[in-house]
Structure formats: C-alpha cells, structure tokens
Simulated assay, not measured.
Amino acid sequence: MFDWSDLRVFLAIQRTGSLSAAARTLRVNQTTVGRRLAELEQALGARLFDRLPAGMVLTGAGEELLPHALGVEERALAVERAVSARDSAPSGVVRLTCVESLGSRFLAPRLGELHSRHPGLRLEVLTGSHVLDLTRRESDLALRLGKPVEPGLASRKLGRMGFALYGTRALLGARPPVHVEDARGIPLLAFDESLAHLPESRWLAKVMGEAVPVLRSNSTSVLFEAALAGLGLAVLPCWLAEGSGLMRVGAAGEGVEREMWLAVHPDLRRVARIRAVADFLAGLIAREGPRLAGASA
C-alpha cells in the first residue's frame, strides 16, 4: 500500500516537468522527491514517468493515475479549507502573491502596520510574474494587476495603478518633450519579450514605434534603477517614479492604467487570518489610491 502523500510528489512532478522543480515547489530536496517517486512506482508496480531530455513525461500508467490523484488532492484541499475556516483569531501563516515591485517597494515598507495590529500573523510574500494557483493553496491571497480569470475564485477590485514614461532631467534636456511621441530618438528601456503582452508594454510599443530598447528586463526594479542612472526612458508605475527625481514625459492622460484586484478561494475568505490581511490590503490601497493611480495618469 502506498503513502497517499506520495501523490503530492507525483502531481508536483507532472506539473513542473522535473524533479528539481517539483522539489522547489514542495520545499524539499531533490533526493527526497526522487525517493518518494520511486516508492510510489514500486508500490503501484508501474513506471509513472519517462525521463526524457525535455523533462519528465507521463507514461500510460501515469496518465491513468492522474485523474485519480487530482481527485484525492481536491478532496484533501477541501478538508483543509473546511478546517481552516473554523479559525477565530487572526494568527498563523498567510501566503500572499503579487508582482515584484509591489511586494518589495510598496508593501514591504508598510507591513509594520499589519504586524502591529495582528502580531500573531506570519506573512509570506511571494513575488514574480508566475501566477500561483489559489485553488491548490500555492497561495492564500493574490494581489493582481487585472481581473482574475480563473473560475471559482472570489475577487474584488481594490483600485487602479497608473503607468507613464519617465526619465532623468539630464536625459530629457532643458526642454522635456511635451508629448510622449516627441521623445522618439531618446534611448529606451523596456520589458523583455516574456512580458510583451502587458498593457504597459503594448502601450510603449505603440507610442514609440520601431525604437529598439537599449535594455530589456523582466523586472520593474531593474528598469527603475536603470532609468534613475540615466540609461534611458522607462514605463514605470507612477507611485514608484514620482518623487524619485525622475521626470514624467508627456501630458496628463498620456499613459496607461491597470486595475488592482484581490483574489482568494471562496472557502477561505472568512478565515480570520486571511480576512485580516485582505482587509489590511483593501484599506491600504484605498488610502494610497491617488498615489497609486498617479496624480496625472
């Protein structure tokens, strides 16, 4: 008889495609993942994955096991959510996912207020462009730029975030461009191709034509620091750029806005610790609303 927890290992490998990535997801070492998979395969008497150069690929036996493993996972998570919902005090771990710039430069300096209110909370802030799955408890709360599209989530709009084009005074000269299009020819900084789908990336490509950026990055923080150093113009969140010494390019209304949404699994939204963090975020964003939206966005 196999250990039911080995199914978590099986699903992690299937979702990530490798032992090392599964180990990072499960927060264990790669040796443990390999051992647990071997034990599961021995217990079932079947090889579940083919180890190919491109990664771990399900065998026929693995394909047959997959829907059953997903069903067990969903039932286990439902039990976990039901038990969590009985919490009465805002204490324990809450995992929040958001984009890197929001987490490091906006939220982190303000989390002391949350800790003062609820010292029993332990917050984990996970940043990056990868969207974590709330239904599988990869995260408890998600602060996203754009309305969540996954089915079955409870979400609410918290506010707006404005983006505009910024550069140093030295780069823009004594007479800064009146309109964004007038800045064509000035060195440009932009997101890399992996983030070309973002509204701010599409807007920049539209207004700057065929300009080739001198720097591309998947990090807002990298673009911000490069813009501060005078390397080029960058589309940045207004709350990040204003007051930094950078000058805004273009007139009021020349920029782009994105909606800020908070998402949670509906079974967890009444859990005290999660509700406490959600209420804090909603209040913080409402209070900082004009700054986040950009006074001239």
Results as ranks from 00 to 15, higher is better:
142 A>C: 05
286 A>R: 12
230 G>H: 04
270 R>Y: 14
66 L>N: 07
164 A>C: 10
112 G>E: 08
131 V>Y: 09
180 V>Q: 10
280 F>K: 07
264 V>F: 02
150 E>G: 01
208 M>E: 08
227 A>N: 00
268 L>V: 06
172 L>C: 06
250 G>Q: 04
274 I>M: 06
90 P>S: 05
104 S>Q: 15
145 L>N: 10
224 F>D: 00
124 E>K: 10
57 V>G: 09
263 A>Y: 02
4 W>H: 12
73 E>F: 03
192 D>V: 06
78 A>K: 11
215 L>C: 06
125 V>R: 02
4 W>D: 12
170 A>L: 13
65 L>K: 05
292 L>Y: 08
288 E>Y: 09
32 T>V: 12
12 A>G: 07
56 M>H: 12
185 G>D: 05
268 L>S: 11
140 D>E: 05
282 A>L: 03
164 A>D: 04
132 L>W: 06
258 R>S: 13
22 A>K: 01
140 D>F: 02
7 L>H: 00
158 L>D: 02
148 P>M: 01
29 N>Y: 04
282 A>H: 03
188 L>N: 03
20 S>C: 05
181 E>K: 12
279 D>G: 11
124 E>I: 11
179 H>V: 13
280 F>I: 09
157 K>G: 11
272 A>E: 09
96 L>R: 03
200 E>S: 15
223 L>A: 06
263 A>D: 02
137 R>F: 07
236 L>N: 00
6 D>N: 10
113 E>H: 12
130 H>W: 14
261 W>V: 06
169 R>S: 15
91 S>E: 15
265 H>R: 09
218 N>K: 13
39 E>P: 06
102 L>M: 13
161 M>S: 13
35 R>K: 15
257 E>D: 14
128 G>V: 08
